[in-house]
């Protein structure tokens, strides 16, 4: 219980940060950290809880980006309705993809989702050239209207990401969460215990799709310029996976910690020494997978357990 109070205090404190009237750089950095907390947590909700490791999560991020960009620039919708529709669209696509891919187990699910993400990226890249119309703008990318200041995105990310983490928190202790954990541990036993495994898997995948889609939508308006190679980059998926693994896959706050630590590392080391940073990521991944498979959070609870 004390742990929850700490997290709520952190959230409330973050709400008050703009009162300090910091420079724009700090808002941008914090917004970026929030974005990654959201992405890693959303990824963890499906992959951490059910054990179905999604290597194509960036697809929903890109779909969210493009849906919001198109709805705002071509349909003239305001930002908030555009983001909501983007999230729903992303979730609907996740239901369709999930229905077909979540029958696959282990690496096959990973391969299928990776292929899906690459396919969507290629479609967005080549669609206009193939059909001789102007929709996705291919590799030119899309420019969105610039309208808001830094604190607007700071708050938008903070509230949305707070909600995402809260949903993960609830799922960790409710009935639906138990279905997901049972699927992760022993899928046949889960069926024998009366769990509709297919529906549970597709449902959680859709929720993850909505979350990542919404984050993508906010990202598009925040950056004001998006291109397929950027928003569909497979490194985004890899970051989500590494952050979740580093902090503690399948836990509520593990991905939050992982996202904070690695975002800051990316911002400091990654900006100046890109290759050192990438090398570091690789080493971290190896060490975590081999020595602390339960991640940073697992390390903490293990120590408590031994006392």
């Amino acid at each position: 219980m004390r742990k929850q109070i700490v997290w709520i205090a952190v959230f409330l404190a973050l709400l008050l940060v703009p009162a300090l009237k910091l420079e724009g750089y700090y808002y941008r950095t914090l917004s970026m950290i929030f974005l990654w907390i959201g992405l890693a947590s959303a990824w963890n909700l499906t992959s951490g809880f059910t054990g179905y490791i999604d290597f194509g999560a960036v697809a929903y991020f890109g779909i969210g980006n493009y849906a919001t960009a198109l709805l705002m620039t071509k349909a003239g919708l305001p930002f908030f309705p555009a983001v909501v529709i983007s999230g729903l669209l992303s979730g609907a696509i996740a239901i369709f993809i999930g229905k077909h891919t979540m029958k696959l187990r282990g690496a096959y699910f990973g391969i299928a989702t990776l292929a899906f993400a690459e396919a969507v990226s290629q479609i967005v890249l080549e669609f206009d050239r193939t059909f001789h119309i102007t929709l996705f703008e291919g590799s030119h990318g899309i420019t969105l209207p610039i309208a808001h200041d830094e604190t607007f995105f700071y708050y938008t990310f903070l509230v949305v990401v707070g909600l995402i983490v809260f949903v993960v928190f609830l799922t960790d202790r409710n009935k639906f969460g138990y279905a997901l954990k049972a699927i992760k541990e022993a899928e046949n036993s889960a069926e024998l215990a009366g769990i509709n495994t297919q529906r549970s898997k597709v449902s959680v995948y859709a929720v993850t799709g909505v979350m990542i889609g919404v984050l993508g939508g906010i990202n598009a308006y925040w950056l004001t310029y998006i291109s397929p190679l950027d928003v569909f980059s497979v490194t985004h998926t890899i970051h989500m996976i590494i952050m979740a693994l580093f902090g503690g896959i399948g836990t509520v706050f593990g991905p939050v910690i992982g996202a904070v630590v690695l975002s800051i590392a990316n911002e400091t080391i990654g900006a100046s020494l890109l290759y050192t940073y990438l090398l570091m990521l690789g080493v971290i991944l190896l060490v975590v997978v081999i020595f602390v498979p339960s991640g940073f959070i697992g390390l903490l609870s293990f120590r408590r357990f031994r006392k």
Binding site: K181, E185, A190, A193
Partner: peptide, 14 residues
């Protein structure tokens, strides 16, 4: 095939 990382009670609860 129990749900390994869950407790005995959680297994029954599920």
């Amino acid at each position: 095939h129990p749900f390994l990382t869950l407790t005995v009670k959680e297994n029954v609860l599920i």
